[in-house]
């Protein structure tokens, strides 16, 4: 399964980067979104994969049931998702303004 996760991250990165290298702001932002997802997968995998248990204690238990998924990368990713959303929203509005004021979102020839 790690192989598939790696494949997902790789494809998300490749397509995200390709879009970021385009000259349109819309493509740039969508590429950024794909890249964020790829990065989250990469961080998620770094803790080791396990299907069995979430890092949540049962109602009456004092200890987690082994094996459980690593909570540290999860906490990191949770932060990353939210921040990523903030960045995305801001850049979207920025792109919107550029488009409104110049009639295009092509930034290739801007000197």
């Amino acid at each position: 399964m790690e192989l598939l996760f790696a494949l997902t991250a790789g494809v998300l990165y490749a397509s995200g980067l390709y879009l970021m290298l385009r000259r349109r702001l819309a493509q740039l932002i969508i590429g950024l979104g794909l890249l964020t997802n790829g990065t989250n997968i990469l961080i998620f995998t770094s803790g080791g994969l396990t299907r069995t248990n979430a890092p949540v204690l049962a109602a009456d238990a004092l200890e987690t049931t082994e094996p459980f998924a690593d909570p540290v990368p999860q906490a990191l990713i949770l932060t990353a998702i939210v921040i990523g959303f903030g960045v995305l929203a801001f850049s979207l509005v920025l792109a919107h303004q550029v488009h409104r004021s110049s009639g295009t979102d092509d930034v290739g020839d801007r000197q």
């Binding site: 790690e2 790696a6 790789g10 397509s15 990469l42 803790g47 080791g48 890092p55 690593d70 909570p71």
Partner: peptide, 29 residues
């Protein structure tokens, strides 16, 4: 892009197969 995607593929694989345990998760648990 594809070359960089390939790097990420290998990087993900390497980190997934050699997970670095810092002892943090058991501490938090």
């Amino acid at each position: 892009s594809m070359a960089f995607g390939w790097y990420i593929f290998v990087l993900t694989l390497v980190t997934a197969i050699n997970p670095t345990s810092s002892g943090l998760s058991s501490f938090y648990a």
